[in-house]
């Protein structure tokens, strides 16, 4: 592809993403943040984000797909255990999960 085409792709994707953000702003300026409509959109956003994260962990399209599912689940369990044992410290959970995944992959492969 030519440089111009590549730039059009990058800028087009930026603009296409911005449309959703602007649409969100348009909605937020019109609805009552205490009302049921706001509550519903909040629920939709939580479900979307949770679905995205679940997909990234359980059905990854990245290189994570090369890691067996049982190994990913073990590391997720270790991460949550470390997080709660350390008094809800994110660093403990993320380190526990990341290090255990790397270590298990090193041992398995």
């Amino acid at each position: 592809m030519t440089t111009e085409t590549l730039w059009i792709i990058v800028l087009g994707c930026g603009a296409a993403t911005f449309l959703w953000r602007a649409l969100g702003v348009a909605v937020v300026r019109r609805i009552d943040p205490q009302g049921p409509l706001f509550k519903w959109v909040t629920c939709v956003s939580y479900a979307m984000v949770a679905g995205l994260i679940f997909r990234m962990l359980i059905l990854p399209e990245s290189e994570l797909a090369t890691v067996p599912l049982w190994l990913r689940c073990t590391s997720i369990a270790i991460a949550f255990a470390a997080y709660f044992v350390a008094g809800r410290r994110l660093v403990a959970g993320v380190l526990g999960g990341g290090v255990s995944l790397s270590a298990l992959m090193f041992l398995v492969s």
Binding site: W20, L23, I31, V41, S45, M48
Partner: peptide, 11 residues
């Protein structure tokens, strides 16, 4: 997802 995220976030 940015649409509902923005709505939930800005307020």
């Amino acid at each position: 997802r940015f649409m509902p995220m923005v709505v939930a976030f800005l307020p």
